[in-house]
Structure formats: C-alpha cells, structure tokens
Amino acid sequence: MKKIINEPGTVVAESLRGLAVAHADLLRVVDDPAQVLRVDAPVAGKVAVVSGGGSGHEPLHGGFVGPGMLDAACPGAVFTSPTPDQVHAAVTAVHGGAGVLLLVKNYTGDVLNFETAAELAAADGIDVRTVVIDDDVAVQDSTWTAGRRGVGGTVLLEKIVGAAAESGADLDTCERLARAVVADVRSMGMALSAPTVPHVGTPSFELAADEMEVGIGIHGEPGRARTPLLPADALVASLLDPILADLPFAEGDDVLLFTNSMGGTPLLELYLAHGIAEDVLAARGIEVKRRLVGPYVTSLEMQGMSLTLLRLSEEMLSYWDAPVHTAALRWGR
C-alpha cells in the first residue's frame, strides 16, 4: 500500500485539519465529535441543510459546505458512517431557527445513525426532517444495503436543496424539493481497480488486467457483473442503458448529466466518456441542459467512473444555476 499518510488511524483527523486551513474563509472544523461547519453558521432564519457519511469519498461531503449548499457535513471514519453524536452536534451547531433538513445516503449505518440524531434533536425542540437518497440502479437484490445505495445523485441533491435553503425557502419546500430530486435521479458506476482502505492495507477486491466490474458501489461493493474490459462506447452504454430504462427517461426529457471519476480516472478518459454519453442521449431525443464532470464522489483511488442523470424541472434547473461557493463547487459569485 502506497499512500501519503502518517498513520492509518489519524488519516481523517489530519485531512480535516488540512481542509480547515485551506478553506478557512468558507468552513470551520470541530474536532470532537468531528464536524465541518459553514463558517457563518448558524444563519438566523435559514433552513440548515446537513449531510455526511464515511470519509474516503472526498470532496463529498465536507467539500460542499458553504453558501448555496451544505451548512454542515459529518465525516465518519473511512467508509464508516458518522455517529449519532456527530450528527446531533452538527444539527445543534447550525440550527438557525427555521428547522434542519438531513440528506442521507441509503446505507444502513447512515440511515440508523442519522435517524437517532434526528430523534435527539427533536427532543431538543428542533424541527428536523430526513430525506434518504437511493439513486444507484445497479442494486437489484443486495446483501450490502437495505435497498438501493445513495451515490452520485447526492451531489445534485445537496446543490439543489442547498440553493433552495439559501434563497429563503422554508423547511416544507426544501423537503418537497429534496424528495422530487430523489424521485428523478438515477446513477450507475463501474471500476477498473479497487480502493485500498488505509487501515486494511489491501485492495477491497481484485480484477484481472482485462476485467472490469459494472455496477460497483462507492465503498467497493460488488457490482452487477464482472466482464471483459469493453471499449469506451460499449462501456458507457453498459452504464447508461440501465439508467435510462429505470426511471424511465424518455424522448423530450431535459436532464442534467453528471460524469464522475471514482478517484483514479484521469480527466482525459472522463471527458471522452462524457462525450459519448452526450451523443447517446442526443440520439434518443434527451436534451442535456446542464453538465458536471469531475471527481466529486470518489472511492479513494479507485479507477472507474459513474454516470448520473437527473430529469430536470424548471425549479430544479433554477436552483442548480443559483450561486454556490464551496471548496469543491463554485459558480455565480
């Protein structure tokens, strides 16, 4: 295992210290329990949007804390859910009097721990709502999660709902919008190599030089199939076809296309794949209104990619275009 670390047990804490000094204008980090908070939180009268999950997926979630997106992120250990006390502390720290919306990826630990934190906050008199995202179409019958996993669509959810909260939308509106995004977003990923968790020290799975895994999860969970490596055209089709069939997407739909690197895929290859996906969608009469390309939901150094499609309403489009200023996503300011 070759990694730029000191000790496996201190990776997350040391990374958070670096995040804090690199982006002190946007966020502050609390060490115990670990939280990444918007620097001006709590914002009085604003719905606070909180998310989080295991570390190792950076910039998700801490890189999306700031104006127009998240008020707080709760980083767990690598590929491990944050604890209820972390989430409860973050909710308390950013609550500005208008309620708190929790955006949770559909993994058993995340869901249970965020629900426990919501109950603790409710006992404090805070109005807390929870929306779970489960956009991974790869999951059919899974022993790894309770249903479909939350993956690339999480970024789009956090941006759109964060913009709504920034604009002054109330908690009911933010919750309704979040559920609308969850209903209309679908994702699927693939891998050419596995991630290596620092405290484990070995790859989470092995692939032969001529193999790929289609449908992997962001923690290295198994996919739908292990197949011979395909040329890019066929590889993109293997991801897009199940996405398009699942909603289903149809001719005339306006969409946001998110082409995501799992951490080890160079932009040369990622843009190549994105261009192919755009051509496929255009041939089916689906118009790509907005795009996002880059490493935004990663799995340590996994070489691979995912595609995410969101069917856009005018409301979603307006909030996607709204200003955002975070460590990893920024425009319009």
Rank of each mutant, 00 (worst) to 15 (best):
R38S: 02
A73T: 09
V91R: 05
A93V: 11
P84I: 15
V78E: 02
A34Q: 05
P8W: 13
V78L: 05
V36E: 02
H61F: 14
D31N: 14
R17N: 12
V47Q: 00
G18R: 04
F64D: 01
P59D: 01
D85K: 13
V91T: 15
I5Y: 11
G76C: 10
G68K: 03
K46V: 01
V87A: 09
A98I: 03
K3G: 08
V91Y: 07
V47C: 01
V21Y: 13
G52K: 09
V91F: 09
V39E: 11
P33Y: 07
L60D: 02
P67A: 15
G53S: 07
S81I: 12
R28E: 08
H95V: 00
A24P: 00
A72N: 01
G63P: 04
G62M: 01
V43N: 00
G9C: 11
Q86W: 13
A72D: 00
A77W: 10
V78N: 02
H61A: 12
L37W: 04
G63I: 00
V39C: 08
Q86I: 12
A34P: 07
V43K: 10
F79M: 11
V50C: 09
V87C: 10
L70P: 01
S81Y: 10
A98M: 06
V11N: 09
P67I: 05
V91N: 02
D71P: 09
S51D: 07
D25R: 11
D71C: 09
P33E: 08
P8V: 11
A13C: 07
D71E: 07
E14P: 00
A89P: 01
V87L: 12
N6R: 15
G96P: 07
G53K: 09
M69Q: 07
P67D: 14
P82L: 13
A41N: 05
A90I: 10
L26K: 06
P84L: 12
S55L: 04
H95S: 10
V91D: 06
V94D: 02
L16E: 11
G52C: 07
L60Q: 03
H61L: 02
P8A: 14
D85S: 15
V91A: 08
L37F: 03
A22D: 10
T92S: 15
D71T: 08
N6A: 15
H23M: 02
A34E: 04
I5P: 06
G66K: 01
S15N: 14
P59R: 02
P82D: 14
G76F: 07
V29A: 05
H95C: 08
G68H: 00
V11I: 15
A44M: 06
A73P: 02
